[in-house]
Simulated scan of single mutants.
Amino acid sequence: MEHLIRVQNDYDRQVLAWLRGRIGDAALQTVALRLGRERKPYLSTICRSLGIRPPGRRQFAAEAARVHRTVGDQYLARIREILGQRPGDPAKDAALPARN
């Protein structure tokens, strides 16, 4: 979609992904082509023409932090599981990757 719409920073990329999920690629392409006759339209222009207000930067940051926390918790749980194993337990050793 970036070939049709002016994307200038990471926030624009997040808004573009959010907008694609909300209205779909076909509708977004139609609006971009209608608004961008001579040059690519700004994402804010597209949102205004649709009457849609995208989430703020803080909302995107909060969602990213939640996802990062979830992934980190999963890794910590796996590390605790590995550290809690007794050495020489063949059933549990089979689950561990082989060392070269």
Rank of each mutant, 00 (worst) to 15 (best):
V7P: 02
D73H: 13
Y75L: 15
R37K: 11
A91G: 05
Q59D: 09
Q74Y: 04
H68W: 15
L76R: 15
G51W: 03
E63H: 14
K92L: 15
A94I: 01
I5N: 09
L35M: 08
D73I: 05
V31K: 12
P87Q: 01
D10R: 05
R80D: 08
M1L: 15
Q29M: 09
E38S: 09
R48D: 13
A62F: 02
A95E: 12
L19R: 01
R80V: 00
P97R: 11
A62T: 06
Q8P: 01
L76D: 15
A64K: 05
F60W: 03
P54N: 06
I82V: 13
W18D: 01
R34D: 13
N100D: 10
L33T: 10
L19F: 10
A17M: 06
A61L: 12
A94G: 02
L35Y: 01
P87N: 00
Q85F: 15
L33D: 04
A65W: 08
R78T: 12
A27C: 11
L35K: 08
Y11W: 02
A64R: 14
D89R: 05
L96S: 03
L43V: 06
L50K: 03
A26T: 14
Q59L: 04
K92I: 06
Y11T: 08
S49F: 13
Q14D: 10
A26G: 04
R53S: 07
R69I: 09
R57E: 12
R99H: 04
I46M: 05
R86T: 14
A32P: 02
P87F: 03
R37A: 10
Q59S: 11
G56N: 08
D12G: 02
N9C: 01
A64G: 03
I23K: 07
A64I: 00
L33Y: 08
I82W: 01
D73G: 14
A98S: 06
R53W: 12
N9A: 07
A95F: 12
N9S: 01
Q59K: 11
S44T: 14
V15Q: 14
K92W: 06
R6K: 15
R13T: 06
D10L: 12
L4C: 04
Y75T: 15
D12N: 10
R53Q: 11
W18V: 01
L28A: 00
R58D: 09
F60R: 03
A27L: 12
G21S: 10
T70C: 09
L33M: 11
T30D: 14
G51Y: 04
E2Q: 15
R53T: 13
P90C: 09
R6L: 14
L19Q: 04
V15D: 01
L19G: 01
P41T: 07
L28Y: 10
R37P: 00
A32E: 04
C47H: 07
A27N: 13
P87W: 03
R34I: 03
A27Y: 02
N9T: 01
A77S: 12
T30Q: 14
R20L: 11
R13Q: 08
G88E: 06
L43A: 04
A32T: 02
T30M: 12
C47I: 05
Y42A: 12
D93V: 03
L50A: 02
R34E: 14
R34V: 09
G21L: 00
L4G: 03
I79E: 07
L19A: 08
A98M: 07
A98V: 13
Q29Y: 00
A91H: 06
V31S: 02
A62S: 06
I5Y: 03
L19P: 00
